[in-house]
Design a protein around this nucleic acid. Structure first.
Length: 794
DNA sequence: AGAGTGTCGCTTTTT
DNA sequence: GCGACACTCT
């Protein structure tokens, strides 16, 4: 096996890096500080393993995101031309493993992977079935609880049991019942959600010895990146795979664990040496990214965390410019100051793409974007309006899903009447009820709709026609995905109405569908180019289910977040979470304030100690993204959720040992006179005058609240009530208040001022038709149900 | 069948 | 103060 006997350390690697790279057998923990060349170490190590005779097919490298997987794959490919390593995400790996053995857990191989929208729809159905009020028990909340349980490997049965054992609250009781039914429905539809992919594989590995042996034999070398982000299910999968051969290499940095809230267990990496007492531990503490100043700030900050493996960061880089904490009057000034710094630096020597602005919550982008637009600073916001989330794309994919998995209820409901073909809600419900009673899959039920006693002949015929059409698609399902899609588009006449449409939205939709066809085309080409099929069940290159299954899997497990373009020539705006793994020459970190960073939720939490440590790590991640310059900002006052509040400095600020530059009271070009007051706010700042009026945020009089005191909605116009308020005060609702006579001036919170031009109905059903000043539009409201406020008479 | 409205609640996000 | 989501009327 040892083909290259004694290889001395290449000049471009440190001794520590080489130690990790040259390690072959047995458990290895690589604690990699920020900027320590971790990816490089992993890829070089894989290459080195292959050089030393390890069969590439026995190596399994797992990451969290597709982006990371792709990056790693291509970097290994550079080092090993012509060889192929399977780098996969946890979910993709699990999907592949589960495909071949679905029966073992009671699924069929063609199972669908439900996305968030499908999950929501399913929970909504379950709530209706169990007769729980969806307003009281919002789908999102329930799914969050179910998801949390799944992350902790708590099955529906276990959830119900633990609830009975303790004294549970109503919420838990409801969750237990919804969870149980939800799982039954998934199975019935031959579907899994994202979490199930992991859960089922845990079950496969832990309950089926032969499967565990087979897989751990196949994957003799397992590598897991970002190990600090693994949740319990992922941990158990890794343990099971590596239990026998113990060739497990995990890399990560506990100080960059920022996903505790979605089930990640920092403990997994902290206890690695207990799980594998014979482990080799390599600490990569030398940083090649940041200046000394930046690194020192990061190091001091993170030293305040208690639940931590001690690690000290060093760098041979220059000291660089000192890190600054800059205090501004408010968020407008903050944004403007940043925009100006960037504009000035670009005028001198920087490029826009050298800059990034990080924030804790997405809501903080607004002011930044506005300031950048005003200054003419190009920017991109890293937040994906995902391609695959678009309705027309989901519809198309739902057709494909239904073709592949005739039991896929979510897909069926999505497309059975899209485009409209006269199969309404009632028909759908009757069919589903009958299908459930008869134990039929959705599509089969549709095909036999004539047997359903509740359905009249026309709806039954329509359903059968639909089923026949899907059947026809199935015949084309083993070939090219693009052709199948084209057939679906043609036969369903989907999107035909958009072709001659004037509306921009329709054009966009059409373009999206076109884009999907292109994506399918690309996929077909790649799929047929794959030749390395080794015939085994888990061959990463080939899905046993053919091209359609592979295509569906790749789109279900892909998200279009990979759209941060480094070469875009623009400043990048993103959350601190999104910043992990990236680096920029100059970083601005906005809103270093209590409530924002640490976020108020973390301080209010039961587990606040742990959560505040995670917030500190989040700040640590942000700081260590900066290569040359770092500025953190805080403000005197900040508007948030409509409230204007004096801020409290972040407790982290004192831990930073950075210079404080107070610009809050300075009358600089972005600033106004000292001391805060609303009047100052409304004063125009140079550069604002030329702006169109809509750029000014203050079109509504009530938006400018005197003295910054937040007021409740009722107090906005003292003495004024809405029509609904007025009627609510009177038993039985007497008659319409006189203020709603024809000619009355009324205000609507959305449409502004208007005049009542006619009245209709009586008492509770009284309606008014209002002509609005702004756009001249007419609108009819039921007085008792609208927020119209009488303002006066004509 | 689709739009419009009222209600709620409000980190972070991948798969 | 705004947006998402669920219900209800046109």
């Amino acid at each position: 096996m040892e083909t290259l006997r004694h290889v001395s350390r290449p000049f471009d690697l440190t001794a520590r890096q080489w130690e990790a790279i040259d390690h072959l057998e047995g458990p290895l923990l690589v604690l990699a500080g920020p900027g320590s060349g971790k990816t490089r170490v992993i890829t070089r190590r894989i290459a080195r393993m292959v050089e030393r005779g390890v069969d590439p097919r026995s190596i399994l490298a797992i990451t969290f995101t597709n982006k990371a997987a792709g990056e790693m794959q291509s970097r290994v490919a550079e080092l090993l031309p012509g060889r192929r390593i399977w780098v996969s995400t946890f979910h993709k790996f699990c999907a592949r493993v589960l495909r071949g053995r679905a029966e073992a857990v009671g699924l069929a191989p063609g199972f669908s992977i439900y996305d968030t929208a499908d999950q929501r729809g399913l929970v909504r159905d379950v709530l209706a079935e169990l007769e729980f009020d969806p307003v009281h028990y919002p789908t999102g909340r329930l799914l969050a609880r179910i998801g949390r349980a799944k992350n902790d490997l708590v099955t529906a049965e276990a959830f119900g049991r633990s609830f009975k054992e303790r004294v549970g609250d109503q919420w838990q009781a409801v969750t237990a019942r919804v969870y149980t039914r939800y799982q039954q429905r998934l199975k019935q539809a031959n579907a899994v959600d994202f979490d199930d992919l992991l859960l089922w594989v845990v079950e496969l590995l832990e309950e089926h010895e032969e499967i565990r042996d087979q897989l751990s034999e196949r994957y003799r070398y397992v590598l897991v990146d970002e190990y600090q982000d693994t949740n319990l299910a992922q941990y158990r999968i890794v343990q099971a795979l590596a239990a026998k051969h113990r060739n497990l290499c995990v890399t990560g940095d506990p100080d960059q664990s920022i996903y505790g809230w979605r089930g990640a267990r920092i403990d997994n990496i902290l206890r690695f040496e207990r799980d594998f007492p014979e482990a080799t531990v390599v600490r990569l503490e030398e940083n090649f990214r940041s200046t000394q100043s930046i690194l020192e700030v990061a190091d001091r900050l993170i030293a305040h965390n208690v639940l931590r493996k001690a690690k000290s960061l060093t760098t041979g880089n220059a000291a660089g410019r000192p890190v600054e904490v800059v205090r501004l009057a408010n968020e407008q000034h903050e944004a403007r100051w940043i925009a100006e710094q960037i504009a000035a630096a670009v005028a001198a020597n920087r490029r826009y793409s050298d800059f990034a602005v990080f924030y804790r919550v997405n809501a903080l982008t607004r002011e930044l974007e506005q300031a950048f637009r005003r200054r003419g600073v190009p920017y991109q916001v890293a937040a994906g309006a995902a391609f695959y989330d678009r309705a027309e794309i989901k519809d198309m994919l739902a057709y494909l899903r239904l073709v592949h998995n005739p039991g896929d209820r979510a897909a069926f409901l999505r497309v059975v009447n899209a485009p409209p073909r006269g199969i309404g809600k009632v028909t759908q419900q009757r069919l589903l009820r009958w299908a459930d009673a008869a134990g039929l899959g959705v599509l089969e039920a549709a095909a036999r709709a004539d047997e359903c006693p509740e359905l009249k002949s026309r709806p039954a015929r329509l359903l059968q026609a639909f089923a026949a059409m899907i059947e026809e698609f199935s015949a084309a399902a083993r070939g090219s995905v693009e052709e199948l899609l084209a057939l679906v588009l043609h036969r369903t006449a989907y999107g035909e109405d958009w072709i001659d449409s004037e509306s921009e939205q329709d054009r966009q939709r059409l373009a999206n569908v076109q884009e999907l066809l292109t994506a399918a085309h690309r996929f077909d080409e790649e799929y047929s180019a794959e030749t390395a099929f080794d015939g085994s069940l888990d061959d990463p290159a080939r899905s046993p289910g053919g091209p359609l299954e592979a295509f569906l899997e790749s789109v279900s497990l892909a998200s279009e977040t990979d759209d941060i373009d480094e070469s875009a020539g623009a400043v990048t705006l993103m959350t601190l979470h999104a910043a992990k793994g990236l680096e920029f020459p100059v970083v601005f970190l906005v809103g270093l304030e209590e409530g924002l960073l640490p976020h108020e939720r973390s301080m209010k939490s039961e587990d606040q100690f742990r959560e505040i440590e995670e917030e500190r790590r989040l700040l640590f991640v942000g700081i260590t993204r900066a290569k040359e310059e770092l500025y953190l900002t805080e403000t005197d006052v900040r508007d948030f959720r409509g409230r204007r509040q004096k801020t409290i400095p972040s407790p982290f600020r004192a831990e930073l040992t950075a210079e404080l530059t107070d610009l809050a009271r300075e009358a600089a070009s972005y600033g106004v006179s000292a001391g805060y007051s609303v009047e100052d706010e409304s004063q125009d700042v140079p550069g604002d005058e030329h702006l169109p009026p809509e750029e000014s945020d203050r079109e509504e009089p009530e938006a400018a609240t005197p003295h910054g005191v937040a007021q409740g909605p009722g107090a906005r116009f003292p003495g004024l009530k809405t029509g609904a308020d007025l009627l609510a005060g009177k038993e039985g609702g007497a008659d319409v208040p006189r203020s709603f006579a024809v000619g009355a001036i009324v205000r609507h919170p959305r449409y502004g001022l208007g005049t009542v031009i006619s009245l209709g109905g009586y008492s509770r059903n009284r309606s008014v038709t209002v002509l609005f000043e702004e756009d001249g539009r007419t609108q009819t409201f039921v007085v008792t149900q609208c927020p119209l406020q009488p303002v006066g008479m004509l």
